[in-house]
Amino acid sequence: MRALPWLYLAAAFVFIYLPVGALVLFSFQGGALPVPPFDGPSLRWYGEILADRDLTSALGHSLAVAFGSSAVAVTLGFLAAYGLARHVLPGATLVRGLLIAPLTVSYLIVGLGLLIVLTRLGAPLSLMTAGIGHVVINLPLAFAIVYASMGAQQQNAERAARDLGASEAKVILLVTVPMLAPALAAAFFLSVTLSWDEFIIAFLLTRFDVTLPVEIWSMLRSGLSPRLNAIGSLVFLVSVTVVLILELLVFRKRP
């Protein structure tokens, strides 16, 4: 009976790590099929994907879309949070609800709506349109995170700064933003990891230049391949690194 929890924990970890483990292990496969028996280790497939022009340019596109859209989302989210937290606005509850609303809607529907409007307008699909879509889904998160951390402590510091003669712009730049740095960083990196990983909106809203998940998707048509394992393992490594940095930098500060 006493061992039961530990058995459950072990079983859960096996379940959780089974696909990731298989993915990473067979990315070092020597042969052309990423399934047992293992005949590695070999870095052959990593070499291949790093030499693949389509993949590396998709990687570049993904990074550009992720950082660009996150920068816009965090900026807009911060400004809105500041406006709502520090100014008395009629209808503030409604505005807050509206800003949060995209969180409850499937990415597929967000993408579909944008696709319909863009096609109606005859606007060409590009990385830019995918970026617009990513701002729509990341803005609510950025807003919510920043808004939640705008406490009374900051407000008092802002009042003190204003009392000492700083203009509102100066107050924001010299007091509010530095004090909110951890929340802003958390919002930004969360936004980057979500955008970098996002598939369906990018799939619907890009045409010729595509992001990494979309490129991976098109590679999937050829079935199981160690190249997919290698690229998947690399993406995992990058995400995990970002998450660990976030954990160490931002969340460790709280005792």
């Binding site: 400004l79 709502l84 100014h87 008395v88 606005l89 995209p102 709506g113 944008l114 879509g133």
Partner: peptide, 28 residues
């Protein structure tokens, strides 16, 4: 005057959400 300023801060996010989320939704 305060309110006007407040709206200035909220407007970019609000307009973005209206243009790229609410409008597409209505069109859909």
């Amino acid at each position: 005057r305060e309110g006007l300023r407040g709206w200035g801060f909220v407007a970019p996010a609000l307009l973005w959400t209206l243009a790229f989320f609410v409008l597409p939704f209505v069109v859909m």
